[in-house]
């Protein structure tokens, strides 16, 4: 039972990293989604480039550039912080695309009606477009959050003591890699499979009502 306990310790770290990554990724995604529609060309181009780089790079590159790269410039991030910043960038870039699609799916009439009622651009976004757009984007966002949880396993490569690194560590000391790695796989599956099935069901339900 000691092995399960150690793995659960790792799982806790994986969940923590998921939460911190989403705490960076969701606001970043919303910010990018809105700013890509900005009237200012420099802001627009900067945000597009920022999002495209975040989406185009493997998460391993994002993680490792922050963890192994920055110390050269005398900026040393802890493993957890580097992982949060790295995957947060990648996740934010992906989420901005999902949120953008949600905002675009809000019927044009909503904006027009809000403008006709004399709302300022900022208030149209804040009270009309964003609340409805986020609701549309919610199922794919939850689906993506599951991917983020999966992605935290990559933080093993920068020594975050998450689930996979506990499993690998136990394997290395006992030389029984197969058992402990399968146990780790079961823990991931036990969380991810039910979540994925629920998201799938939720999406189907929503589709029936549109």
């Amino acid at each position: 039972m000691g092995t399960w306990r150690q793995l659960l310790d790792g799982l806790t770290v994986s969940v923590e990293l998921t939460v911190t990554t989403l705490a960076v990724g969701i606001p970043l995604g919303l910010l990018l989604a809105v700013a890509v529609g900005s009237k200012s060309r420099p802001i627009r181009w900067f945000c597009i480039a920022f999002a495209e780089i975040g989406r185009g790079l493997p998460w391993l590159v994002l993680l490792q550039i922050f963890y192994f790269g920055l110390p050269e410039f005398h900026i040393t991030l802890g493993a957890m912080l580097a992982a949060t910043v790295g995957t947060g960038w990648g996740a934010g870039a992906f989420m901005s695309e999902i949120i953008r699609a949600g905002l675009d799916a809000v019927p044009e009439g909503q904006r027009e009606a809000a403008a006709a009622s004399g709302l300022a651009y900022r208030d149209i976004l804040r009270y009309v477009v964003i609340p409805q757009g986020i609701r549309i984007a919610l199922p794919p966002l939850i689906g993506f959050a599951i991917m983020v949880f999966q992605g935290t396993s990559l933080a093993f490569t920068i020594a975050v003591p998450e689930l996979l690194s506990h499993a690998y560590g136990i394997g290395a000391t006992t030389f029984r890699y197969l058992n402990v790695l399968i146990m780790a796989g079961i823990l991931y599956a036990v969380i991810i499979v039910p979540c994925a099935l629920m998201v799938g069901r939720y999406e189907r339900q929503l589709r029936n009502f549109v």
Binding site: L164, Y168, R176, L181, G185, V193
Partner: peptide, 24 residues
Amino acid sequence: IEIVRGVPVIVWLFVVYFGLGAGV
């Protein structure tokens, strides 16, 4: 399908390479 997709690729990679590799 759900189980294959529900376990991170890096975990599958370790199961096959280190897990099966150790003796299987």
